[in-house]
Design a protein around this nucleic acid. Sequence first.
DNA 1: AGAGTATATTGACAACCTTCGATGTACCTG
DNA 2: CAGGTACATCGAAGGTTGTCAATATACTCT
Lengths: 121, 121
Amino acid sequence: MTAIIEFQERKLGSRCCEGVAQPQLDPAAAQRLSDDLQILGHPVRLQILDILAQHAGQVCVCDLEAALPVKQPTVSHHLKLLRSAGLIDSERHGQWAYYFIRRDSLAELRTRVSQWLNVLG
Amino acid sequence: MTAIIEFQERKLGSRCCEGVAQPQLDPAAAQRLSDDLQILGHPVRLQILDILAQHAGQVCVCDLEAALPVKQPTVSHHLKLLRSAGLIDSERHGQWAYYFIRRDSLAELRTRVSQWLNVLG
DNA sequence: AGAGTATATTGACAACCTTCGATGTACCTG
DNA sequence: CAGGTACATCGAAGGTTGTCAATATACTCT
C-alpha cells in the first residue's frame, strides 16, 4: 500500500503507455532462459537430475523407474528431453544404459539462471 | 565415454534395479521447486518480471502491453498467474493498476532455486 | 447521465505436455 | 537359435497452457 508513494506519480488523466518501459531481456534471451527453466520445471525431471547427481554414471533406466512414480516409457521420455536439452548423456554397457549429468552444460545453465536471478533481485 | 570407468562397474548379468538410488528431493519438495521453475518458465512472464524489477511501482498494464508481444487479455492473464504465485502484487490508482514485485517472495524463491542448483552442481 | 479509457474476466480454440500400453530393437544367456 | 531382460519408440488419450475477441467492470471527465 505504500509501494508507489515514494515515486513521482504519473499525472492522472494523462495518456499512459508512453513506451517508457522496455525489458532489458531481449526476446531471444527471454526465450533461452525460459527454455532452461521449463526443462527443469517438472518434478520427475528434477528427481532424475537429483539422482544422477548423487550416483553419477551408475544409474540405469530401471533404477530410475524404481525410484520414480512413473512407468518406464515415461522415464525414457523425460530422459530424452533432458538429453535433447544437453543436460545429460548416456553410455550403453551391454543391455543397460547408464545415464550421467553433463556437468559442463549444467554449469552453463546454472550460470544463466543465477545471473538472471541476481539481475532481478 | 570415460564417465563410468572410474566407478566400480555393476556386475554384468546381475539383476539391476536394487532400489539403491533414491532422490534426496522428496516428492513435495520436487513439486514445489517445479512450481517455482514453471512459473518462471515463460518468456512473457520473464519479461514482465524484468520490467517490474526496473520500474517498480510505476508500471501499469498498458505499459506492459506496449512492451510485450501479446495482447492485453494475455498480459492480464500472466499477471494473474504471477500474482497467484505470490511474486507480484498491484495497487489500483484511479483507472490504472500499478504492478510491482514482491521482493520478499521473490527472494524466497531465489533461495530455493539457488540452493537446489548448488546441491546439484 | 453519457462517452471514453484501463483493466479483468469469460469462453473458445489450438497447441503442447504427460502418461502409458503396445510394440520394436538390441543384447545377453543357456 | 529361443527365451528373457533392458531400453526406445509409437500412438492414443487426457490434461494443461497460451492466446485473443468479446464482454464486463470500474473509474474519469464533461
